[in-house]
């Protein structure tokens, strides 16, 4: 099929996702990822720690773990959809970072993303495709934050590239 041979124009892809996201907004709420990821974190922590998790009030007050939280399944769906797309277009193969420095950067980046999402009560997807279109005050705060952060991150990244070069 042509769809799996050629790269799709991201403008078409995102316009289609936006239309679907409007349906999501009407049914349950706009596209989001961070909330589902938090719930997964809670479920995994519960599986490991059991009742000990009660000693961390965050998980009983802010995010009591529930497996039937719909936002979890958006993320699992994205994993599945991307897997199907990659296999169908013969683009699925294991890519493993080669340098130790890459592993270190990814680890630090991941930690900052997880910590930041929870501090803000919001992720970047909700910022661009939820809060901003709802004209929520938080959208403008979050947008300023992520642009400033991406700028600082790019400065750090450039410095690292120059050092390696």
């Amino acid at each position: 099929m042509e769809f799996f041979r050629k790269t799709l124009d991201p403008i078409i892809a995102l316009a289609a996702i936006a239309v679907l996201d409007i349906f999501m907004f009407l049914l349950m709420g706009a596209w989001t990822v961070g909330g589902g990821e938090t719930m997964m974190t809670g479920l995994m922590a519960q599986a490991v720690l059991g009742d000990e998790l009660d000693r961390i009030p965050f998980w009983s007050i802010v995010f009591p773990p529930h497996a039937d939280y719909w936002k979890i399944y958006i993320s699992l769906g994205m994993l599945f959809g991307a897997f199907v797309g990659a296999v169908a277009s013969k683009e699925f193969y294991l890519r493993v970072p080669r340098h130790l420095s890459e592993w270190v950067l990814i680890t630090i980046g991941g930690l900052l993303m997880g910590f930041g999402i929870r501090l803000a009560y919001i992720c970047n997807v909700s910022t661009f495709f939820g809060l901003m279109p709802e004209m929520n005050l938080g959208g403008y705060l979050a947008m300023s934050g992520i642009i400033a952060g991406a700028w600082v991150g790019s400065l750090i990244y450039k410095k690292l590239l120059e050092r390696d070069a």
Partner: peptide, 24 residues
């Protein structure tokens, strides 16, 4: 929303560039 909204996404912004990927 408040200061945490800005600060959280600021940390996120740095993290996503370093990791080369975001939540999506």
């Amino acid at each position: 929303v408040g200061l945490n909204t800005f600060a959280g996404l600021f940390l996120f912004g740095i993290g996503m560039v370093l990791a080369g990927a975001c939540t999506v």
